[in-house]
Amino acid sequence: MNRDKVIKVRNLVKKFGSFVANDNLSFDVYEGEIFGFLGANGAGKTTAIRILTGLSEPTSGEVMVAGFDARRQPEEIKKNIGYMCQKFSLYEDLTIRENIMLYGGIYGLDRNTIRERTGQLLDKLRFSEYGDRLISSLPLGVKQKLAFAVAVFHKPKIVFLDEPTGGVDPLTRRQFWEMIYETASGGITVFVTTHYMDEAEYCDRVSIMNEGRIEALDTPAELKRLYNAATVEEVFVKIARPGANSKKENADNNRIV
């Protein structure tokens, strides 16, 4: 791939006391790519995302996001990214319009731009008549799609999605992924973590973390070939459960997934 790198990580280490949460991570993410960031709970994903979004400082190593240094220019990074987390991130007691107005304002958009884009957004999602309804009155799937739309409302270079589809029905998940594809084709890079392995198949490239290290990083097809597996799920299990993995035969057998 000869596209521009929007995320560039070299030898990233993050320690909490003597505990190594991120052990020498190095990877690139290209512009317009859908990058799946997988790993078991406690593998160090959240720590890595916090560093990439400028919330936490790396102990050592080089981290560039959207062209800015995560250590020295976290404020610049924050202006150029969008973020949606596991927990639902819109305000329940505000209407759709008020939520959009709030987040648009926080990202420095002027009123006219916000109004214009709000109209387009509501049309696209076919929510036009619901604009003044409180978020708390909407079904979860709708809220989730809306949260994503708000996260990319200010047209960031990269959007970070931290388990965005938790607790959502399969149909909404599919619609959600259609939105992700559309966003990526519009040039916004999507950095997504998920526990649903079928979703990992939709990504352009996938990295799998275990015990603070990235154990594998490639396209889903290539990973399946390398690990001689039928699905990404199988690849994941082979990596996360040592002993079943030919590459890591010497690994500690006491590890629990």
Partner: peptide
């Protein structure tokens, strides 16, 4: 509610 995380990631200090 998790909105604090979103705010912290935003350009708001």
């Amino acid at each position: 509610f998790g909105t604090m995380e979103v705010l912290l990631v935003s350009p708001l200090k």
